[in-house]
Nucleic acid binder design. Structure first.
Lengths: 116, 116
DNA sequence: TTGACGCATTCCATTATCGGCATATGATTG
DNA sequence: CAATCATATGCCGATAATGGAATGCGTCAA
């Protein structure tokens, strides 16, 4: 099996840096493809491809406006991501302490031992 | 070019569901490889490979304990992820409103038009 | 209808994943 | 040193993502 599809969920979709940048730009409101491409220094086809992925996972919506297609942010799909990562919030402080303790133990000649 | 390496950053590392599960288990404290593999129903080599990725992006630490190697959570690398996603927090509520408005416009026979 | 513009899609090459299986490496015990 | 347990690594097959280039398709203007 290969890596999961980028379209399988928001986690995979936002793993790509350029797609994150697109989402950031869209916080400023809906934008046509070409403008996104220009602002991010990518080709129009690349922008379209990234937008397709974002649309398939539901992070953006489209509406036609004449010749243009305006893409709009739909951030709801990011909420589960935020919540999952938020489950570690208390740990990225605590981790410092455990590392401190670890280092102190090393200096005392004792190996690790945070647990036992 | 192919997709960015899973080891390129935390975003890519946590795109894989099994690696997320490993991190969740490690919130309960350090664990040896075999126990993680058993708890997650994956093979030992797979667990080792996932742990390698997590270690390379700095989300876990290892220490030897006899024959075993105990993996420990280092959640600090998740903080940037949380912050990036958090930048969309105000939008996943606002989005509902914009969708509501969109739907109301549709019912009135007007196309889209959230913008103009 | 023809032409121009905006965007989506397809084809291609390169590259890296993930999983299974076998095996190498490391540490402990006797 | 030999045997064993715990873990890491190597190889393979299958999958697919990314970027570039070319092209298809829909819309608007004349």
């Amino acid at each position: 099996m290969a890596r999961a599809a980028t379209t399988s969920d928001a986690f995979n979709a936002i793993a790509e840096p350029q797609r994150r940048e697109i989402l950031v730009l869209l916080r400023g409101g809906e934008r046509p493809v070409t403008e996104l491409a220009r602002n991010l220094g990518m080709s129009q086809p690349q922008a379209s491809k990234h937008l397709r992925v974002l649309r398939e996972v539901g992070l953006v919506r489209v509406r036609g406006a004449g010749k243009q297609r305006l893409y709009d942010l739909d951030a709801r799909g990011l909420r589960p991501v935020h919540e999952w990562v938020g489950g570690f919030e208390k740990f990225w402080n605590e981790t410092f302490d455990r590392l401190d303790e670890y280092v102190r133990n090393l200096k005392q000649g004792k190996a690790g031992g945070t647990t036992g």
